[in-house]
């Protein structure tokens, strides 16, 4: 699984303050925390509860309702295979299958070494370039099985060299 992280409490405080501790911004606060750690560490929930003055149940309810929030650690690189209609028609299933096979995980899981998480996403609006994936924030379009696997190779190799850092 992914490595244990150390939480930078100051940064989380900053995020909450950036949104004026307004509970209406709970979802965006959690999205910004996700930008830091790729997930919302459950350890942060008591602080959110206190600062935003909301019930813990609301935080869990929001965190589990929305797809962009995960309470479990995710991999260093997150592969999102677009499963929108256009990509589906153009063969997104084949791309997803190729990754499942190659990484030996199911959709929604993270590799043993914590390097990759594989997730489906409902359309990123690049429908004319399908099938499309994003790795972290990079978009890769016009894929087939072999192109998709080449991209994976690229990230594996640069990760070995320690070049690809999360931006």
């Amino acid at each position: 699984m992914a490595n244990k992280i150390t939480i930078n409490w100051d940064k989380i405080q900053d995020i909450i303050e950036h949104y004026n501790s307004n509970p209406e911004n709970l979802l965006m606060i959690m999205q910004d925390i996700t930008n830091l750690y790729n997930y919302v560490p459950p350890e942060a929930i008591p602080l959110l509860k206190k600062k935003l003055n909301v019930k813990e149940s609301l935080i869990y309810s929001v965190a589990t309702f929305y797809k962009t929030i995960s309470l479990e650690p995710r991999g260093k690189h997150i592969i999102h295979v677009c499963t929108g209609t256009a990509c589906h028609i153009l063969g997104a299933v084949k791309i997803m299958d190729a990754y499942k096979e190659e990484l030996n995980i199911k959709e929604g899981q993270t590799t043993e070494d914590g390097l990759f998480s594989l997730e489906g996403v409902r359309c990123i609006g690049c429908c004319a370039s399908g099938p499309v994936i994003t790795v972290d924030k990079e978009i890769h379009g016009g894929l087939d099985r072999s192109k998709a696997l080449n991209i994976l190779e690229l990230y594996k190799r640069s990760s070995e060299r320690g070049e690809v850092e999360r931006g």
């Binding site: 499963t83 929108g84 209609t85 256009a86 990509c87 589906h88 409902r122 359309c123 609006g125 690049c126 429908c127």
Partner: peptide, 12 residues
């Protein structure tokens, strides 16, 4: 919140 998969005019 252009949720319709396959439509992206709002994004554009």
């Amino acid at each position: 919140d252009e949720g319709d998969p396959g439509a992206y005019m709002d994004r554009s």
